[in-house]
Amino acid sequence: KKRTSIEVSVKGALESHFLKCPKPSAQEITSLADSLQLEKEVVRVWFCNRRQKEKR
């Protein structure tokens, strides 16, 4: 599967949402994915990776 490159504006939106809620529910992920026109899986993986980055 190809890597999904996420645009800067979209990254900003994800980042601000992450600061409010680092662990969104499935429903939040779905609505966020719909509003940003991304697949749910892409958003879910982005949050997983972002939480891991926070640990480092």
Rank of each mutant, 00 (worst) to 15 (best):
E15N: 03
E39H: 13
I29T: 03
S35D: 14
C21S: 09
R3S: 13
F47W: 04
S5T: 15
L14V: 03
K23H: 11
A26N: 10
Q52K: 12
R51A: 09
S5Y: 08
S35Q: 13
V42I: 08
K55W: 08
Q37H: 06
V10N: 06
V10I: 12
S35Y: 10
R44L: 05
R44I: 06
R51M: 08
K11S: 08
Q37L: 07
H17I: 06
K2L: 07
E41M: 02
G12M: 14
L14P: 02
G12T: 15
H17G: 03
K23P: 01
C48G: 09
K1Q: 06
N49T: 07
K20R: 07
R3L: 13
K20C: 05
R44S: 10
E28Q: 05
V43E: 00
K23E: 14
G12F: 10
R56T: 14
P24N: 01
S35H: 12
A33T: 02
I29E: 03
R50W: 01
L32V: 06
R56H: 11
F47A: 01
S35G: 12
K1Y: 05
G12Q: 11
V43H: 01
V42D: 14
R3A: 08
R50F: 00
A13Q: 13
R56F: 02
H17P: 00
F18P: 00
L19D: 09
L14I: 03
S35R: 14
K55L: 10
V43W: 02
E39M: 00
A33D: 03
K53I: 11
K23G: 05
R50P: 00
E41H: 08
S16C: 07
L32H: 02
V45D: 14
G12L: 15
L38S: 01
H17A: 15
R56L: 15
E28R: 04
A26M: 13
L32Y: 02
S35V: 09
D34C: 12
T4Q: 10
Q37N: 10
P24L: 01
S16H: 07
R50C: 01
I6G: 09
A13H: 08
E41P: 03
V42K: 10
S9N: 08
E28G: 05
R3I: 14
S9Y: 06
A13W: 05
L19N: 10
I6V: 09
K40N: 13
I29K: 00
L14N: 03
R44T: 10
W46M: 01
S16T: 12
K40C: 09
Q37M: 09
Q52V: 09
K23M: 10
G12A: 15
S25T: 13
C21H: 10
K23L: 08
K55Y: 12
C21F: 05
L19E: 12
T30S: 13
Q52P: 00
T4A: 10
E7Q: 09
K11C: 07
K11A: 10
R50D: 02
R44K: 10
L32D: 00
Q37C: 14
E15I: 03
L36S: 01
R51E: 08
I29V: 08
S35C: 09
K20H: 04
R51P: 02
I6E: 10
K2H: 06
W46S: 03
P22C: 07
E28V: 08
I6R: 10
C21R: 05
A26E: 11
E39W: 00
E28A: 07
N49Y: 05
R51C: 04
V8M: 14
V43L: 05
H17E: 09
L38I: 08
W46K: 02
D34I: 15
S5W: 06
D34T: 14
K20S: 07
E39D: 14
F18I: 00
R51N: 05
E39Y: 03
S9M: 12
K11V: 13
S31D: 14
L38C: 05
L14M: 04
Q52T: 13
K23Y: 06
F18S: 02
F47C: 01
Q37S: 12
K23Q: 12
V42S: 08
K2R: 08
V10H: 10
T4D: 13
A26H: 11
S25L: 05
T30V: 12
V42E: 13
A33N: 00
W46L: 01
E15P: 00
R3P: 09
S31N: 13
L14C: 02
V8L: 13
N49P: 02
E28W: 04
R51V: 07
W46A: 01
S31R: 14
S25M: 04
F18C: 01
W46V: 01
K55V: 10
I6H: 07
Q27G: 09
E28L: 05
L32Q: 02
I6K: 15
R56G: 13
P24C: 03
H17S: 14
L32P: 00
T30N: 15
E39C: 09
F47K: 00
R56I: 04
R51S: 06
A13S: 08
S16E: 12
K20V: 06
I29Q: 02
A33I: 00
S25K: 06
E15C: 03
E28K: 05
A33L: 00
V45L: 12
K40P: 12
V45K: 11
Q27K: 12
A13T: 11
K55Q: 07
V8I: 14
E15A: 01
K2F: 08
K23N: 15
R50M: 04
P22R: 05
K55T: 12
R51Y: 15
R3F: 12
C48T: 10
C48P: 00
K40G: 10
A13D: 05
L38H: 02
G12W: 09
V42F: 11
L19C: 10
K55A: 15
D34W: 15
E54M: 05
V43D: 00
K2G: 10
A26Y: 07
R50Q: 08
P22L: 01
I29W: 02
K55H: 06
V10S: 10
V45A: 14
L36N: 04
L36A: 01
N49D: 15
K11H: 13
L38E: 03
V8E: 14
H17K: 05
L19A: 11
Q52M: 11
K2C: 05
I6Y: 07
K53F: 10
I29R: 01
A13K: 14
K20I: 07
K55R: 07
S31H: 11
V42C: 12
L38K: 01
E54L: 06
P22G: 04
E39N: 07
K20G: 04
R44Q: 11
T30H: 07
F18N: 02
W46Y: 03
S5I: 15
Q27T: 13
R51W: 10
P22I: 03
V8N: 15
E15H: 02
F18R: 01
N49A: 07
R3K: 14
K1I: 05
K53D: 07
N49F: 04
L14F: 02
S9R: 15
K20L: 06
F47T: 00
E41D: 10
A33V: 03
T30W: 06
P22H: 08
V8C: 06
N49K: 11
V43K: 01
G12N: 09
G12P: 09
K2W: 07
L38Q: 04
R56A: 06
L38T: 07
H17R: 04
C21I: 04
S16G: 07
V8D: 11
Q27W: 06
V10Y: 05
L19K: 08
T4K: 06
T30G: 10
V10E: 11
N49Q: 12
L36V: 04
K23T: 14
V43S: 00
S9A: 12
K11W: 11
H17Q: 06
A33H: 02
E54N: 05
K40W: 08
V43P: 01
C21P: 00
L38F: 02
R3H: 12
C48M: 11
F18D: 01
E7C: 13
V42M: 06
S9C: 09
K53V: 04
L19S: 12
V45W: 11
E7Y: 05
S25R: 04
D34N: 15
V42Q: 09
E15D: 03
R56C: 14
R44G: 08
T30M: 10
